[in-house]
Amino acid sequence: MDPREEQAIDAAKLYYRLGRSQDEVARALGVSRPTVSKLIQLAKDRGYVQVHIRDPRESAAELVERLRERYGLAEVRLATGPDHGDLLQQAVGRIAARLIEENVHDGDLVGLSWGKTLFAVAQQLVPTARHGVQIVELKGGIPLHSRRTREYETMTYFCEAFDAHPRALVVPVLFEHAETRRAVEADAHVRTVLELGRQAPTAIFTVGAASPDATLFGSGHLSPDDREFLLAHAAGDIFSRFYDDDGRECLPDLADRTIALSLEDLRAKERRICVAAGLNKVRALAVALEAGFVSHLVTDEATAELVLARG
């Protein structure tokens, strides 16, 4: 390496690494400012300097394409920015609301789940002129829960946004005995709502992590044995139906006591819009994608990267 190249490297380090101006570099090296410009250009020409521009738009576009290709998704939308907390929920909710508005049309029958994530989506919906839309609940609720699960408010916001008729499933999602669940499902109103849920071409839902903090775990509806089994074997849940790492519903006894759309019926739907964000949902979301439960995905960049990394 000749002295001129060494001087070019010194100039590049001062300029790029230390952020000095070209005048400051000139004074430090004892050369003129035009000479500094030539030295920097020489460092580039010799390959000692490589300029890398990270455009977050391009990064997001690459993630979108990788997700679409790997899981055969019709559409993917990503939120950028904070990767946790209420700000993340709001960001993802806003993007999901726009996607949903684009996919609800006159006369549509739309299936809807509930949860903190979907309440954040519901709050971001902009009233959109639609006619003849029906919103049908795809799972029962959790009455008398210590936490506010927001199922009523979520349904209300969705119906107001699309001037839709509500088809509410006003029953618990989980019963103590399978016989009780079967008796409730025999009721004409419940049977009608469940059948509408099966017929709906669109399902809007989230995935939940199988963790002690999950809503159903704190509801008092699970026995200690159920909790222990799910924590050991479940990857996550959709509609309070827990699935393992192969995407198969686990704990048959619990499934028999649950009033909600089945995972098989979900997989058969034309549009399966999943909204899920946060690092605690990576495993649940990755399995749901692999199992074919999702056709349209809204998540955040950090979650997307970790989901792809699992493969």
Rank of each mutant, 00 (worst) to 15 (best):
Y16K: 04
R181T: 07
C159M: 12
I53V: 15
T117D: 12
R27A: 06
I135M: 12
I53F: 15
D10E: 04
L297Q: 14
A61P: 14
Y48A: 12
A255F: 14
Y243N: 12
A203E: 03
L109M: 02
H189I: 00
Q7F: 06
R98S: 05
N103K: 05
R68C: 06
H84S: 14
R33E: 13
Q50I: 03
A210E: 09
A288P: 14
L174Y: 11
L222E: 14
F229I: 02
I95N: 10
Q41D: 15
A291K: 01
E101L: 04
S113M: 00
E249C: 02
I142T: 08
E195M: 10
R70F: 03
A260N: 10
R147S: 03
E176V: 00
D187P: 00
Y152N: 13
G115D: 06
V25W: 08
D86C: 03
A91V: 05
S37P: 11
L88H: 04
L118Y: 07
L73R: 08
A43P: 10
D23F: 12
G311P: 13
V287Y: 11
P34E: 05
D265V: 00
Y243C: 12
A276L: 01
S32P: 11
A255M: 13
L144R: 11
H296S: 10
R267P: 10
V25T: 01
A276R: 01
V184A: 03
Y71I: 00
S223W: 09
T154Q: 10
G115A: 03
A43R: 01
A97P: 11
G141H: 08
P252G: 10
E305C: 03
L14Q: 01
D245C: 09
E185F: 11
L261R: 05
D187Y: 03
G19S: 06
D226W: 08
V184F: 14
R257Y: 14
V190T: 04
I204V: 15
R257C: 08
L297V: 07
L18H: 11
G208P: 14
A286M: 11
Y71T: 00
P3Q: 06
E176Q: 07
L39Q: 01
H221F: 15
A210R: 03
F162P: 07
V121K: 05
K269A: 04
V190A: 02
A12S: 04
A28R: 06
E195R: 10
F175P: 14
E160C: 00
A276F: 02
V76A: 13
R148W: 09
L42P: 06
A260Y: 14
D83M: 05
P3M: 03
L14Y: 06
